[in-house]
């Protein structure tokens, strides 16, 4: 049986944890793909912000992650599944200013405790689940006109 991909567009990317030199590559890639697909600029900018913040979290805390980008009429969805340490208290992690980042991360200007807030604010729908010792799963949905 031939399975057809029901999505208008879908692609997956890998993020390498711990490597701040390549941080931003996946979000830059997503941004240029969305532009090429003709997604309006304000939607592309939102997608760039949420994917960048998620990417920085992976680089800061996880060994690796997979990012799934799917585009369908009316909606862009970005999913980030990492193998990081997990978040024991999601409510706390969602509080602006709360961060577990170490000094090295903070010196670069990351770890301000604003990443997840930016993701929430710039997504139309945001789901986060996490299991300590297993990893974290983010699902960001942005509506398109």
């Amino acid at each position: 049986m031939v399975e057809t991909n029901p999505n208008l567009y879908s692609n997956s990317f890998n993020i390498e944890g711990g490597n701040f030199n390549s941080a931003g590559i996946v979000s830059t890639n997503i941004k240029s793909i969305l532009k090429k697909l003709g997604i309006p600029n304000d939607i592309v900018r939102k997608a760039a912000i949420v994917s960048y913040e998620a990417e920085i979290n992976v680089v800061s805390y996880a060994k690796k992650a997979i990012v799934n980008l799917t585009v369908n009429p009316g909606v862009v969805q970005i999913e980030v599944i990492d193998d990081g340490p997990g978040i024991p208290n999601i409510d706390l992690a969602m509080q602006e200013g709360y961060s577990t980042a170490d000094q090295r991360i903070r010196e670069m200007g990351f770890g301000a405790g604003m990443g997840l807030c930016n993701i929430k604010n710039y997504s139309d729908d945001f789901h986060i689940t996490s299991e300590v010792g297993k990893g974290t799963h983010l699902k960001m949905t942005i509506q398109t006109p």
Partner: peptide
């Protein structure tokens, strides 16, 4: 100087 602040 906070990258998330600038991002947001």
């Amino acid at each position: 100087d906070l990258l998330s602040d600038v991002m947001g």
